[in-house]
Design a protein around this nucleic acid. Structure first.
Lengths: 203, 203
DNA sequence: TAGATTGTTAATCGATTAACAATC
DNA sequence: TAGATTGTTAATCGATTAACAATC
């Protein structure tokens, strides 16, 4: 199991490599890739070294080989489906987010407790919260995005866990108590933005 | 200048402390605060120690004092205004995001190059991209959120920098070239989500 | 006092980076 | 060959955590 930071870098390498490939290049040097991803070239080579990806001392690395190898490591399935719980504005923005498609990631359904928001005929259907548990087990969904109000987050999280969800991207501004081993990624845009103001004011 | 990770922790302490305060408590022990923020109690005490916040060996820390001291460090101004460039769905979701208000953060305007999206009468006005530079200098805005398509990101970033922006939260999936010292926080939800699928599949 | 908690030093841990030999 | 780049080891750096004395 590769650690989080390295996985994030690998995904970014891959995204940049695809772009370079589209521009017609077939090979790339570690220092170029480093520059385009904001890393040091030694970091790039170290990462590749650990993945048993080898380059050529004259012409650098083969881009297609890199992409294939990274995808191999990422163990991408044909379809990577996530559900989203709490269908406010952020949720709807994520449902329409185009970048997901490119990586074979799809948000397959949304859930909400408000009857007015239910709308099973949308491209991404929004279903009643009561149907969530059944949907998760029927469709073997493993990843969920949590965009419910803070006060409901823990309760919904517990349900998700109960239903078999293994990883959660949590936008609710609360620390989730997890007695098991669900992978949780916290996204707190307000905290991040507030920190930017600190650095601006502190300079 | 305090480093980023510590600032992020401080902001989270503060948010949790406010919640505890509302529930009627006036003092808190480091281990409680640690639990509620997902940190170790030694981390909490170490952070406080570096900020010259002292507790009481019998009754822990005074919550009001903690909040005041953290706010003092964060150098919060009365109004912390950010603009947002590229008014797609994510931008609109952020414009309505309630959590910002609580921290005296406001998104004061949006900008877009598409004439159809212009709408100066909204609660958060959406203005033409041409007016951005003038707006930034007139209102002394220092922070911007970048939600334009990837191919426009560098160009818009350069303009923002030119106009006096000092910190950028970038949602566009590209590494920005910055010859100066603008603070950049990258938010890449697709990368984060993709990494979750890795960990789920790799277990 | 006994027990619990703070405050701080020292140890640990892990990740990044520098240095450099190998080699194309 | 000379120059450039890879691949890897060793050094550095910084942050977290363990340990523990002080003390309420």
């Amino acid at each position: 199991m590769i650690n989080r930071k390295r996985i994030i870098r690998l995904i970014r390498y891959k995204n940049v490599l695809k772009r370079i490939l589209n521009s017609g290049e077939e090979r790339v040097f570690s220092n170029i890739l480093a520059e385009l991803t904001g890393e040091k070239s030694t970091q790039v080579r170290k990462d590749f070294s650990l993945l048993k990806i080898t380059g050529n001392k004259k012409s650098g690395y083969d881009i297609n080989e890199l992409i294939d190898r990274i995808n191999e490591i990422l163990i991408k399935k044909d379809k990577n489906s996530a559900i989203i719980v709490g269908c406010g504005k952020i949720a709807k923005a994520l449902m329409d987010y185009q970048n997901f498609k490119e990586e074979n990631i799809e948000i397959c359904a949304g859930f909400d407790s408000n009857p007015k928001k239910i709308s099973p005929s949308r491209p991404v259907p929004i279903l009643p919260l009561e149907d969530m548990n059944k949907y998760i087990s029927d469709n073997e969904v493993k990843v969920a995005i949590l965009t419910v109000p803070a006060r409901f987050a823990q309760e919904v999280f517990d349900q998700l866990k109960e239903s078999g969800i293994l990883a959660v991207m949590n936008f609710a501004p609360v620390t989730l108590k997890d007695t098991g081993d669900v992978i949780i990624k916290y996204i707190n845009l307000d905290v991040e933005l507030e920190s930017l103001f600190y650095f601006v004011n502190a300079r």
